[in-house]
Nucleic acid binder design. Structure first.
Length: 448
RNA sequence: GACCCUAUCGUCUAGCGGUUAGGACACUGCCCUUUCACGGCAGCGGCUCGGGUUCGAUUCCCGAUAGGGUCGCCA
C-alpha cells in the first residue's frame, strides 16, 4: 500500500517555519515513496480561523513548491477540493465527528461529563512505536494517574483536536503521521482513540523541533519564525527549502546544496535526526546567495524591484533599460535583497550623503586636483562604456604618477556615497556621463 | 511536580568499537583584485560529566547534568 501522509495546519494567519518544515518532510516522504501528500485544514476554532488565514497557508506551501495531491483548491472552506476523502476542512466534517462520538458513547468508551464528552483512557502506559525515536513507553503523569480521561467534545458541542485529528487520519486513510516532536506525548491519547475505533494506528514519525539561535523555543514572535518573512524579503524559495532540509536531516557525503530532486531520492524517515536543531540565519543567507547567483535575470530584476520598493526606492521613475542595467551590476554581489537599497540606492536617487569616515579620508585637498583631472578626462570622452572608463582612469592615474586606488576611492565615494558597491567602471557607465560629472562636481566642491 | 525526547567544533552535521574525529556556515590571516563580494590557500575550534561492558569507547549500558517537549472544554 502506498503511503498517505498529511500536513494538517491550523489556520492562525501565520505559517511557522517549523510547520513549513513539517510540511516539507511529509511532502518529501510522499514524493520519495510515490505516495500521496494530503493537505487538511484544522479549522475547528471558528473564532480565529478566517479565509485569509487559510490563504496564508496555501500561499506559503505554493511558494515553497510543496504541491498537494489531495486537499483544498481554494481558501474557501465550502469551496472545491481535490481528492476522494474530502472535505478537507475540519469545519465541514462535523457529521463525521458526531457519528464517531456516538459510537464511542454507545460502546461505553466515552461518557458525558458536565456537558462535555470525555474519552475513557486506560490507566496504563502506552507504547508508541516511532520511526524516528524508536519505541517510546510512556508512563502516566501524576495528573493522568489521578484522571487519565480527556475531553473529546467541549460543552459547547465543538469536537477537540485529539478527536478530530484521529478521526480524520482514520477516515482519510493516513498511513504515516509525520509531525513535530511536541506531539509525541499526546500520541498516547491518539493511539488509544484509534484502538477504541477498532483500528490499528498509523505509523508515527516525530521530527525534532527547530529552535532559535540561542536554543530557546522558536515561537511566533521570534525573528524569522514566520515563513512570510522570507517570502516578503525576497529569499529564493529553493534556498529556504534546501536549508530546511538540512535541519534534522542530512544528505550525507558532505553535501549541502542540492537540488530538490536529489533530496527526494535520498530522503527517508529512519534517517531523520533525533535532536532539535537551532536555526542559523547566517547559513540560510549563504545558501540564499548560492541560489541567488543562479537566478534567471528576469526573476532577479523582479525581486530587486520589489525589494527596492519595500525600502521606498521607486524605480518606476527611471527607464526600464536603465533599471535593468543598474541591477545587472548587482547580480552575484548581494547576498540578500534587503541589502540592495543600501548597495544600489545611489542609482535611483540624486541626493545622498557620503560615508563620513571615507569622506574624511578620500575627499582631501590633495585629491582635489586629481579628481578634477579625471573629471575633465571623462568630459572629453566620446565613448562612455566600462572599458573606456577603466582605461581612462588608469591613464589619468599614470599621468599623475599615483596608483589607481588613489582615484578609485574618491570617485566611488563621489558617485555612490559608499565604500562598497558594484564594479566602479560599470556603475559609472550605467549612470551616464552627465550624472557622473554632476556627482564629481558636487564632490569636488567640498574638497577645496 | 509527573511523564517523554535529546546531547560531536559557536551553529548545522558526517561518524554507527580501533579515524591524525571529516564537511559546511561563521570567524581569523594571506593571495587575487577598481571597492565589496566571488574564487584560491592556510588557520582557529568539538566528542557534557561520572560509572560500567570491552584488549580498546565519541560510538554500547546505567546514572548525573543540561536543553527541549507534554501533562487544556488550544491546536
Amino acid at each position: 500500500m502506498k503511503p498517505r501522509v498529511r500536513f494538517a495546519p491550523s489556520p492562525t494567519g501565520f505559517l511557522h517555519i517549523g510547520g513549513a518544515r513539517t510540511a516539507l518532510f511529509n511532502w518529501l516522504y510522499a514524493r520519495h515513496t510515490g505516495g500521496t501528500f494530503i493537505l487538511r485544514i484544522e479549522d475547528t476554532d471558528a473564532a480565529r480561523n478566517t479565509q485569509a488565514a487559510v490563504e496564508v497557508i496555501l500561499n506559503g506551501l505554493r511558494w515553497l513548491g510543496l504541491d498537494w495531491d489531495e486537499g483544498p483548491l481554494t481558501a474557501d472552506a465550502t469551496g472545491p477540493g481535490k481528492g476522494e476523502r474530502g472535505p478537507y476542512f475540519q469545519s465541514q466534517r462535523g457529521e463525521n465527528y458526531k457519528q464517531r462520538v456516538e459510537a464511542l458513547l454507545a460502546h461505553g468508551l466515552a461518557y458525558e461529563h458536565e456537558g462535555a464528552v470525555k474519552f475513557k483512557m486506560a490507566r496504563e502506559p502506552v507504547v508508541i512505536p516511532d520511526l524516528v525515536v524508536g519505541d517510546v513507553r510512556r508512563e502516566l503523569t501524576d495528573r493522568e494517574a489521578a484522571d487519565p480521561d480527556f475531553v473529546i467534545v467541549r460543552s459547547d458541542g465543538q469536537p477537540v483536536f485529539h478527536l478530530t485529528n484521529v478521526v480524520d487520519d482514520l477516515e482519510m486513510g493516513i498511513t504515516h503521521v509525520i509531525r513535530g516532536e511536541d506531539h509525541l506525548s499526546n500520541t498516547a491519547k491518539h493511539i488509544a482513540l484509534f484502538r477504541a475505533f477498532g483500528v490499528e494506528p498509523p505509523r508515527y514519525a516525530h521530527i525534532p523541533l527547530i529552535l532559535n539561535g540561542d536554543g530557546t523555543k522558536m515561537s511566533k514572535r521570534d525573528q524569522g519564525a514566520s515563513l512570510a518573512t522570507y517570502m516578503d524579503e525576497g529569499y529564493a524559495p529553493e534556498a529556504v527549502v534546501n536549508y530546511l532540509c538540512l535541519l534534522g536531516w542530512s544528505p550525507k557525503q558532505n553535501r549541502e546544496k542540492l537540488p530538490i530532486g536529489e533530496v527526494i531520492e535520498r530522503f527517508d524517515l529512519p534517517q531523520i535526526l533525533r535532536h532539535n536543531a537551532r536555526f542559523d540565519l547566517e547559513k540560510l543567507h549563504w545558501l540564499n546567495y548560492e541560489y541567488l547567483r543562479e537566478l534567471p535575470d528576469d526573476r532577479f530584476h523582479e525581486l530587486c524591484v520589489h525589494a527596492l520598493a519595500r525600502a521606498g526606492v521607486d524605480t518606476n521613475a527611471y527607464p526600464v533599460d536603465y533599471v535593468k542595467a543598474a541591477l545587472d551590476t548587482c547580480k552575484g554581489k548581494i547576498k540578500l535583497f534587503a541589502e540592495l537599497p543600501d548597495y544600489a540606492g545611489f542609482f535611483f536617487r540624486e541626493e545622498f550623503t557620503y560615508d563620513t569616515g571615507a569622506a574624511q579620508r578620500d575627499f582631501t585637498a590633495e585629491n582635489q586636483p586629481r579628481l578634477l583631472k579625471l573629471r575633465d578626462a571623462f568630459a572629453r570622452l566620446t565613448a562612455f562604456d566600462a572599458d573606456t572608463i577603466g582605461n581612462t582612469l588608469k591613464a589619468v592615474a599614470q599621468e599623475l604618477g599615483v596608483k589607481v586606488g588613489v582615484l578609485v576611492h574618491p570617485t566611488r565615494l563621489a558617485c555612490c556615497g559608499t565604500t562598497a558597491g558594484p564594479s566602479l567602471y560599470h556603475l559609472i557607465a550605467v549612470l551616464g556621463r552627465e550624472r557622473v560629472l554632476q556627482r564629481l562636481d558636487r564632490a569636488l566642491a567640498r574638497m577645496g
